[in-house]
Write a protein that binds this DNA or RNA. Structure first.
Lengths: 196, 196
DNA sequence: ACCCTTTTGACACGCAATGCCATTTGTCGT
DNA sequence: ACGACAAATGGCATTGCGTGTCAAAAGGGT
C-alpha cells in the first residue's frame, strides 16, 4: 500500500499539528473541531474519524511516549529483571522528550490548560499502568509477579514519571528530565525479592 | 439557614443515589441527564447546577474518600512525620470504604464501565496528588520537602492506593482493603532522610 | 478503461452543557 | 400575617461534540 497510506499519514500529522497550534494559541474550548478541520481543509466528520474525541488531538502526542516505554520494556525484559527494566524504560522515554524539550513543554502546557485534556491523559496513564502490570504478572514470564506487586511496581514507576514531569514543568528544577527522574527514583526503593 | 439547606442536601443526595442506581443498571451512556433528573422530579437544568458534568454524579462518591484523606492528613501532620502520616491517612480511607465494601464495589464498577468517568476520577486523583505534594512542600511546615521529593512521595502513596483498589476489584485478592494496602506498602520503601 | 475497495463529505440527529429570564419558594423584618 | 427580598428552580434557546447513514470521490488491481 503506497499512496493511500501516505495520504492518511499526512492528514493525520497535519491535524495533529494544526490542532496543537490552534489550541496552543486560542485555548482548548475556544478552538472547535470545525476550526481544526478547516485549517487542514477537511470535514469535521473526517477529523473525528482520525481521532475519537477532540482531546485526542492533543493527547495523541502522549501516545508516542507510551510507545517508547512499551517497546523499550518488551526488549529489556528479555535480559533484565522487571523493576530495572521498567525504570530504564521510563528513563529512556524521558530522555527522548528531553531532546525535544521546547516542543514537549508546549504540549504539556496545552494539556495542563484544560481539565478534560488532563483527565484523558491521566486515564491513559492509568491504562498503561494496568497494561504494564499485566505484563509483569503474566504467567508466561519466567517469574511472574503477584498482581498486587506488579501493579504497585508499575504504578510507582509512573508516579516517578509524573513527579519528574511536574517538577520540570513547574520549573522548580532546571536540570534535564532524566536527571530529575534519577532524583525521584533515588527516593524510593523496592523490596529486594521484588527485584528478582 | 434551615429548610433551604436541608432541601438542597436532600435533592443532592437523591440525585446522587438515583444517578448511581440508573447508571449501574442501564450503563453510563444509556442513562441521560434527563433520566436522572426525572427520577428525582427535577429539571435537567437543576441537576447540572448541582453537578458540573454528568460524570460528577458518579465521581462525587470519590470526593468523600478524598475528604477523609485530606482531614486525616491535616490532623496527623501535626504529630507524625509526613510519610508516616500520609500512609496512615490513605489506609484510614481504605478502612472506611472496606466497611461499605458492597457499596464501594458498585461505585468502582460504574467507574470502570466507562472511559469518561474513569478519566475524571484519574484526574481528580492527579489533582489530589498535586495538592498533597504542595502541603508536604509548603514552606510553613517545620521541614518542608523539596518539590520533587514531595511529589514523589505523594504520587507513590496514591499508586499504592490504586494498586490496592485494583487488586481488590479484580478479585485477585480476597482480603480486606487495608490488608492489601499493607502488602503493597511493604514492597516500597522511602529513603530514610525523607522520613524525617 | 474497468470494477472494487477505501476514504471522504454532507446531512441529520441525540445529548451534554451554558446563558438568560421568568417563576416559584424559602427567609426575614415589621 | 404580610410583604419585600434573596435564592433556587424551570423553561427556552443555543452551541458544540460525537454518531449513524449514505452518496460521491479517490486509489488500487486487472
Amino acid at each position: 500500500m503506497g499512496l493511500r497510506e501516505d495520504k492518511k499519514d499526512r492528514t493525520r500529522t497535519q491535524l495533529l499539528e494544526a490542532g496543537l497550534d490552534l489550541i496552543h494559541k486560542r485555548g482548548f474550548e475556544a478552538t472547535t473541531v470545525a476550526d481544526i478541520a478547516a485549517a487542514v481543509s477537511v470535514s469535521p466528520r473526517t477529523l473525528l474519524r482520525y481521532f475519537p474525541t477532540k482531546e485526542d488531538v492533543i493527547v495523541s502526542w502522549v501516545q508516542d511516549g507510551m510507545t517508547i516505554i512499551r517497546e523499550e520494556l518488551e526488549e529489556r525484559l528479555k535480559s533484565e529483571p522487571p523493576v530495572v527494566a521498567l525504570l530504564a524504560s521510563a528513563r529512556a522515554m524521558l530522555a527522548v522528550f528531553d531532546e525535544k524539550s521546547r516542543f514537549f513543554l508546549t504540549i504539556e502546557t496545552a494539556i495542563r490548560s484544560n481539565r478534560s485534556i488532563s483527565a484523558r491523559k491521566e486515564q491513559m496513564i492509568a491504562e498503561l499502568t494496568d497494561e504494564v502490570a499485566r505484563i509483569l504478572a503474566s504467567p508466561d514470564r519466567p517469574s511472574p509477579l503477584p498482581w498486587v506487586v506488579a501493579y504497585t511496581v508499575s504504578g510507582t514507576v509512573f508516579a516517578l514519571v509524573r513527579a519528574t514531569i511536574s517538577s520540570w514543568v513547574e520549573g522548580r528544577a532546571r536540570t534535564s528530565l532524566p536527571d530529575i527522574f534519577d532524583t525521584a527514583a533515588s527516593i524510593v526503593h523496592f523490596e529486594e525479592n521484588v527485584t528478582n
